[in-house]
Write a protein that binds this DNA or RNA. Structure first.
Length: 571
RNA sequence: UGGGGAGUCGUCCAACGGCAGGACGGCAGACUCUGGAUCUGCUUAUAGGGGUUCGAAUCCUCUCUCCCCAGCCA
């Protein structure tokens, strides 16, 4: 047995596991499982569960299984199985040779069901769905017994066999547990164990036309796999008595302990599969792996690293209280990772032409640039400088507001790794009055970016040489939802009315350092002063496409926002 | 109005009868060839009332608020 290091995360579940180990429970084994239903793509909420289950196994020298909870053939598909496997692996977890399916156990489950019938603990019920609902009672009123509750065991066995044999149509009969129709816990009011579903299953094909319900299948699967701690989310808390009832009545050797924790919620985000599906089907995003989606595949395409997601899951902790984690924490985690690992590069997203009027017409210089100031081992590169450059449109203001340190008429700034330049003339479009070009002078003595006379400039700008730069498309993403709480809507509306119409902005004529020409799909960079970006699979030869993963922390943007709000409040 | 849970800084998580702490955010400053990074400081919390105790976020009690459950979904 291994007790986790003090620097490992601790939480109430790990505390329970530690206590169990101290007490010598489960022969000192720790065995968890991650049990997704293959009916959708994994999202960051699943990542929390994955990190918890695999993390506990790792910390306590135990094992964690991957198990597909595939008991509803009408909703499940192999496509999802594949994506789930890929996502778990990408997150950095390994289930070894322990990939299972609940459907692997259908035969055993059937035998267990027969065992329950023989013990007088289950019966075949002929009530239809509607009638079952009526008999169930309500939250405050008890239910009443099904008229089929007291059939003979022989008749129940016969009927159940015939259910399996396909003699009855969908919905005509169910197998039910015989518990207590007056229980305050509705899950204990003779819950359905098996339903008839003449549907093809993605693994068992047409072998079965009856399928077990979650409550039965899950505890049995856990028990068969020798799970010690069955970790699930809060909404299953009142299923626990049923989980225990089945395993007690079945008298199985392995009776795992179900422990519930609060699912992850993120501000400015919806998380349920149902809602994510609506975003996809409603065309609000371009598929499950749209970089705006909180799916693992979306985050991956957005440029998130597995490390950053694991780190996030560790930082948010595990508890039983409903909570909403600030998405700023996720963003902090990816910045923290990429700051240390992403090579720096200069990219001008919204180009403004600059002509260095005192620079020779045909000259090109190769200047030294640092690849990553956080990691000298990443080395240096050369960047080309010449007479015509592009700078960021936002880095120039004809009429600079207070605290704007960047370029303005008559002002001197530094071009990173290059020269100090001073803006001497602003060229505008005659009709639109839009600034189209800047004429600047450079100080040859400042080559490399340092002034021999030690004079300071307040800003350093990124830039590219017009004749050397390559063109690229860059996609800027913002929160998909406008409000921290997507459910904060007017009466009668839903979260879709909070969808941010500007969550994607596509920039087509961005100018990048030429070294980015054949950047590999998925590779990540910091565009200096702009943020972290990663190469999208939509890229093609000569036409790279970048996704903005996250901006850099932007003090100026904050000041500017404050200034604008200040003006607004005075109006 | 049945049953099951949960209430600690703005947010998330700790503190397990003994000084309410960390992280993110926010604010201020230092430094800086990224308004980045880094560093420093500040900010703010035990839902409420009663009780037990030398001592309560923690134990007891009453109240309040929030979440989940009436699928032949998981």
């Amino acid at each position: 047995m291994t007790i986790p290091d003090s620097n490992r995360p601790s939480d109430f579940i790990r505390d329970i596991v530690t206590e169990d180990l101290k007490a010598g429970k489960n022969n000192n084994r720790v065995h968890t499982r991650f049990p997704p239903e293959p009916n959708g793509y994994l999202h960051i909420g699943h990542a929390k569960s994955i990190c918890l289950n695999f993390g506990i196994a790792r910390d306590f020298n135990g094992l964690c299984n991957l198990r597909f909870d595939d008991t509803n053939p009408t909703k499940e598909e192999v496509e999802y199985v594949e994506s789930i496997k890929e996502d778990v692996r990408w997150l950095g977890f390994d289930w070894g040779d322990r990939m299972y399916y609940a459907s692997d156990y259908f035969e055993q489950m059937y035998r267990y069901a027969v065992q329950l019938i023989k013990a007088g603990k289950a019966y075949v019920c002929d009530l239809n769905a509607d009638e079952i609902r009526q008999y169930r009672g309500t939250l405050t009123a008890p239910g009443k017994d099904s008229p089929y509750r007291n059939r003979s065991i022989e008749e129940d066995i016969d009927l159940f066999e015939r259910m399996r044999a396909g003699e009855f149509p969908d919905g005509s009969r169910t197998l039910r547990a015989k518990i207590d129709m007056t229980s305050g816990n509705i899950n204990m009011r003779d819950p359905v164990i098996y339903r008839i579903l003449h549907a093809e299953h993605h693994r068992t094909g047409n072998k079965w036309c009856i399928y077990p319900m979650y409550d039965f299948a899950h505890c049995v699967s856990d028990s068969i796999e020798g799970i010690t701690h069955s970790i699930c989310t809060l909404e299953f808390e009142d299923h626990r008595p049923l989980y225990d009832w089945f395993l007690d009545e079945l008298k199985v050797k392995c009776h795992p302990q179900q422990i519930e924790f609060a699912r992850l919620n993120l501000s400015y985000t919806v998380m349920s599969k149902r809602r994510l599906l609506r975003l996809v089907e409603g065309g609000f995003v371009n598929g499950w792996n749209d970089p705006r989606m909180p799916t693992i595949s979306g985050l991956r395409r957005r440029g998130y690293t597995p490390e950053s997601i694991r780190n996030f899951c560790e930082r948010i902790g595990v508890a039983k209280r409903d909570s909403v984690v600030d998405i700023a924490l996720l963003e902090y985690c990816i910045r923290e990772d990429l700051n240390k690992t992403a090579p720096r590069v200069m990219a001008v997203l919204r180009p403004l032409k600059v002509i260095i009027i005192n620079y020779p017409e045909d000259k090109t210089e190769e200047l030294d640039a640092v690849n990553n100031p956080e990691d000298p081992a990443m080395g240096m590169r050369k960047v080309a400088f010449s007479k015509i450059l592009y700078i960021e449109r936002d880095d120039f203001r004809e009429d600079p507001p207070k605290q704007f340190f960047r370029l303005a008429p008559g002002r001197e700034v530094r071009l990173r790794y290059a020269y100090y330049i001073t803006c001497v003339k602003v060229i505008k479009d005659e009709k639109t009055c839009e600034v189209v070009e800047l004429h600047c002078t450079y100080d040859p003595a400042t080559r490399g970016g340092d002034a021999p006379d030690k004079r300071k400039v307040k800003a350093t700008l990124h830039w590219v040489s017009a004749s050397h730069a390559i063109e690229a498309e860059v996609r800027l993403y913002d929160h998909l939802l406008l409000k921290e709480d997507p459910d904060d809507v007017e009466e009668g509306k839903d979260f879709k009315s909070n969808i941010n119409p500007n969550s994607l902005e596509t920039l087509t004529y961005c100018r990048l350092e030429p070294c980015l020409a054949d950047a590999r799909s998925g590779s990540r960079y910091q565009f200096e002063r702009m943020g972290y970006f990663c190469v999208d699979p939509d890229s093609s030869a000569g036409k790279p496409v970048f996704n903005r993963t996250v901006t850099l922390r932007d003090t100026w943007a904050k000041i500017e926002k404050g200034q604008k709000e200040g003006v607004r409040s005075k109006e």
